[in-house]
Amino acid sequence: MACFSLVFLRAQHIPEKGVVHDSVQVPGTNGETYALYLPKSYSENTLSPILFIYSPNARGSEGVKTFLKASEKYGLVLACSNNSKNGPYDRNFAIANNLFNHIFSFLNIKQDEMWVSGFSGGSRLASAIASLTNQFAGVVGCGAGFSEHMPSTQNFLYVGLCGNRDMNYGEMISNKNYLDLIKFKNTLITYDADHRWPTPEHIVRAFDWLYLQKLKQKNPQPVNQIQTYYQSDTDLLNGFLESGDLILANEQYERILKDYETVIQVDSLKENYRLFQKSKAFKEQKSALDNALGIEEKFMTKLRSRFSEEFEKNTKVHLKWWEKELNNLEGFKAKDDVELQKMVDRVKFDLFVRAYGQRRMLLQTNGAEQLSSVNRLIKIIYPSSTLTE
C-alpha cells in the first residue's frame, strides 16, 4: 500500500510566472525533475489551486502545455513529473510523494483546490493517487480509466475525457456507468479524436465542470456565474445539434439537465430532450453506436485472447490467422456507417499498442524470432509502418 505524506510549508524562491520551466530539480532525490508552470496571476501572498499531471512517457513539459489555457483561466499551478511513467505503481507513488513534499515546501497551495490529471497510463495513476489519498478535489482522467485502485467511497469529483476513436472509449463509457451506479459525482466528455492528449479547449471544458460543482456548493449560490456556465453549455449543445452529431448532443443534454436542474429553470429543455430522444435521427445514431460497441467487444475479446496466447505466452504465431481477422475487421471500414469506422480505428490501435509494447520488451530481451513475428503483425495492422528489426 502506498504511503503519501502531504506536508504544507511556507513559500521560498518563486520561479518566473507565465513560463514553462521544463526541468526543475526535486531536492533530496536521485535526479528527479518536473515541469512547472505558474500562471500569470500567481501571487505568493495568496493560496493557489494546483494541478498535478502525469504523463505516460515521463514528458513533463508536454503534459503541462496541454493545460496552459485552463491554468490561466482558473489560476492553476501546473506540475508534471519527468520521471513518472507507465510502469510499477510503487515506483510512481514514491516519485509522486517526493514531488508533493517539494511543491508544498515552497508554494502556497489551496488545500481544497488540489486537482490531479493524466493521460493514458498517467490517467490511471492520477485516479489511483486520488483514491488512495482522498486529499484531492477532483480528477481529470484523459484517455483511460482506473487501475486496481478505483474510486468508491471517496469524495472527489471525476471528469473523464476521451476521443470516440480512442481504444479506451468503451472502457470510459463503462467507467461512467460504474460511477453513476455508486452515485459518485462524475461526468464524461467525449469528442472526435483518437488516443492522444485532449485539446486545451476540452481541458477547459473539464475544469468548467469542476468549478461549476464548487459554485453549486456555495451558499448563497452565485447565480450570475452559474448562468454564465449554463449559457456556455447550451451553446455547445446547439452546436452539436446543428452539426448533426447527436451522440455528443445527447451527452450534453444529459450533463446540462443533471448539472442545472436544481439551480436553473430547465423545464423547456427537459421537453426538448424528450422530443430529441424520440426522434428518428437520434435513434438511428444511438442504434449504430450500440451496434458498433457490441461488435467491438467481440473483436477485442478475441484478438486480446489470441495475442496473449501467441505473443505473451510465446507459443507458435499464426500470421495467416491475423491477416484473415484484420481483413475481416477492415471490411467494416467500407460500410457507410461512421460508428463502425470509428470502431475499426479503436480495435486496430488497441492491438497496435499491445504489439508495440511487446516489441519493446523483445528488443530488450533479444527474442529474435518473436520480434520478427511481432514486427510482421504490426505491418498487418498498419501496412505503412516502418519498424525495423
Rank of each mutant, 00 (worst) to 15 (best):
A94H: 12
K278D: 12
A288W: 03
F104P: 05
M1W: 08
R10C: 00
N291C: 11
L319E: 13
A70K: 03
T46R: 15
F276R: 13
H13I: 09
F332K: 01
P151Q: 12
E261Y: 02
Y191E: 15
A292M: 04
Q213Y: 02
S41V: 06
E296G: 05
V159N: 03
D345K: 15
K40T: 01
E16D: 12
L132R: 14
Y191D: 10
A288K: 09
L132V: 15
Q227V: 13
D336T: 05
G118I: 09
Y273G: 01
K110C: 03
Y158S: 09
N186H: 11
K302S: 15
L236Q: 14
F352A: 14
N134C: 08
V7W: 05
G170H: 07
T187V: 11
L329D: 13
S287R: 06
A281D: 13
M343F: 06
F93W: 11
K342T: 04
G244M: 09
T386Q: 13
S71A: 15
G239A: 15
L99C: 12
E297V: 10
V24R: 00
P220R: 04
D90L: 05
E325C: 03
F8D: 04
I256A: 06
S147D: 14
G87V: 07
K283N: 12
N30F: 11
E330C: 06
G141Q: 15
V140L: 13
N82E: 08
C162N: 12
S384T: 11
D112C: 02
E297C: 02
K379S: 14
Y42C: 08
Y253G: 03
S105N: 03
P220T: 10
C80V: 09
L340Q: 13
N250F: 05
F207G: 04
G294E: 10
S232N: 13
Q213F: 01
D267S: 05
I378Y: 00
Y260H: 10
H195E: 14
D180I: 03
E325L: 09
P49I: 05
Q358P: 00
S372F: 04
T365W: 00
V159S: 09
I50P: 00
E309Y: 08
L340H: 05
F276P: 04
D166I: 10
F276A: 15
R346H: 09
L293E: 15
I173E: 11
F332V: 00
A126F: 09
V344T: 07
H195G: 08
E251Q: 15
W321D: 14
V344N: 07
Y158K: 06
A2E: 03
A137V: 08
E369F: 02
D194A: 01
E325R: 13
D336P: 02
P15G: 09
L248I: 06
A79K: 01
Y230A: 08
V204H: 01
Q252I: 02
S232A: 15
V26C: 13
E32H: 12
Q225K: 14
I189F: 01
Q341L: 06
K298F: 11
T262M: 10
A334P: 04
A355S: 12
S384D: 14
R165T: 12
A35N: 01
D245C: 09
G63C: 14
R360D: 05
K283I: 06
S120G: 05
I256G: 02
K278P: 00
N57K: 14
G87L: 12
F240C: 02
P49R: 06
L371I: 06
